[in-house]
Computed example of a mutant assay.
Amino acid sequence: MDTVFSLPITTLFVALFALTQIPFTVAVGIRRAQTGIQFMDGGDPALLKRMRAHGNFTETVPMALLAMAAAELSGAPAALLWAGGGALLVGRLLHYRTLVTSGFGNGRAVGMLLTLAPLLVFPVYVLLTLAGIRL
């Protein structure tokens, strides 16, 4: 049976982000196994970095994907959806890598900017569309 997706671009990004989250989650579990720390971070800097990188991903990605789905349902152009989804993906990967490796740096800042851009653009598109303003 053929399945028709009403949100083909967002659906693809949901799948990509779900798969991306697996190694982030596993990295926390591996560090817990290495250190024997079962709860919180136990003062281990490496575990804390992994936990915050995983947590930040988990805190930002779901809302961005919901905003993306709303934009797609509102008729956003495919180019906007691909650009926003791509920026979010690159931003999350860059932020994660920088946070886990050094904890700070330009990669972390750029990663957050690439994350915040879709979190701003998608809902603004939806609100403008609801107001009857077409771009």
Rank of each mutant, 00 (worst) to 15 (best):
Q21M: 14
L127V: 15
G103H: 07
Q38F: 13
E59R: 03
I37Y: 01
H95L: 01
L19Y: 09
L16G: 03
V4H: 15
G29L: 03
F24N: 03
A76V: 06
V61S: 02
M112G: 01
T3C: 09
E72P: 11
T58C: 06
F5A: 14
V110F: 13
R97V: 14
M112F: 15
A53V: 00
Q21T: 13
Q21N: 13
V26W: 14
A15H: 09
G43S: 01
R134L: 11
I133V: 14
L16Q: 02
Y125V: 06
F57V: 05
Q21R: 07
V121A: 13
L80T: 01
V14P: 05
G85N: 11
I133W: 14
G75C: 08
A70T: 03
A64R: 02
Y96P: 07
L116Y: 14
F39D: 08
K49M: 12
T129R: 15
M112D: 05
V124P: 08
D44V: 04
V4C: 07
L7T: 15
I30S: 06
G75L: 13
V121D: 01
A71W: 03
A71H: 04
G36P: 05
G107F: 06
A15D: 06
M63H: 08
Y125F: 15
S74C: 13
T115C: 08
V110E: 06
V28T: 04
G36N: 05
G55Q: 02
L7V: 10
F104C: 10
A64P: 00
R108T: 00
Q34L: 12
A117W: 09
A46W: 13
L116I: 14
G42P: 03
V100G: 03
I9Q: 00
Y125L: 07
A70F: 15
R134N: 13
G29V: 01
V4D: 10
Q34K: 15
T25Y: 12
A70R: 03
M40S: 10
A46H: 14
M112H: 11
V14W: 14
Q34D: 15
G86I: 11
M40E: 11
T60A: 10
H54N: 04
T25W: 08
P45C: 06
V110H: 07
L130K: 10
Y125I: 09
L99M: 15
H95G: 00
L88M: 13
